[in-house]
C-alpha cells in the first residue's frame, strides 16, 4: 500500500514537472546579453523534477527507502487543514478580527475546550491582535467587505 502511495506521489511530481516544462516552453529564449535566458533554469528544473520523481517511483517499486515511513493523512488533520483554509479565505470577506475570533472559537472547541472558555479566549485574542498589530505596529489589518 505504501509503495502504491509512493508511486502515486512520484507520478504527481512527474505531472508537475511536465506541466512546468509546458509552461516554461512559452518563455523567451536566450539573448546575446544573457546567454542562458529566462527559460533555461525552468527547463533544467522541470527535467530534474521529472528525473527525480521517476527515481522515487522506481525506488518505491523496488521497495527502497523512497517509500518507507509514509504517515497516513488523517481525517482530523484534514478538518484542521480545511478550517485554516476557510479562515484565510474568510479574512478578505469578513475582515481579520471577525474571522480570527470565529476561527479561534471554533479551533478551541474542536480542540476540546468548553463554549465559555473558548469564547473568552477568542474575544481576548482578537482584542490582543488589535492592540499589538493595529495600535502598536500600525498594521492596517483587513477590514473585509461586510
Amino acid at each position: 500500500m505504501s509503495a502504491v502511495k509512493s508511486l502515486l506521489i512520484a507520478l504527481g511530481f512527474v505531472g508537475l514537472g511536465l506541466a512546468y516544462l509546458w509552461q516554461a516552453s512559452g518563455l523567451p529564449a536566450a539573448r546575446a546579453d544573457d546567454l542562458l535566458g529566462p527559460a533555461t533554469m525552468p527547463f533544467a528544473l522541470g527535467i530534474a523534477l521529472i528525473v527525480l520523481a521517476i527515481t522515487l517511483g522506481a525506488a518505491a517499486l523496488a521497495g527502497g527507502a523512497g517509500d518507507a515511513g509514509l504517515v497516513p493523512v488523517r481525517r482530523q488533520h484534514l478538518v484542521v487543514l480545511l478550517g485554516i483554509l476557510a479562515y484565510v479565505a474568510a479574512v478578505p470577506l469578513a475582515g481579520f478580527k471577525a474571522s480570527t475570533a470565529l476561527f479561534l472559537f471554533a479551533g478551541a472547541l474542536w480542540g476540546g475546550q468548553r463554549v465559555v472558555p473558548a469564547g473568552l479566549f477568542a474575544i481576548g485574542m482578537a482584542i490582543l491582535f488589535h492592540l499589538v498589530f493595529e495600535l502598536l505596529f500600525r498594521v492596517a489589518l483587513p477590514r473585509g467587505l461586510m
Binding site: F103, L104, G107, G111, Q113, F121
Partner: peptide, 8 residues
C-alpha cells in the same frame, strides 16, 4: 492547552 495554543 494545545486547543488554545495552536489556533493562536
Amino acid at each position: 492547552p494545545a486547543s488554545m495554543l495552536f489556533p493562536a
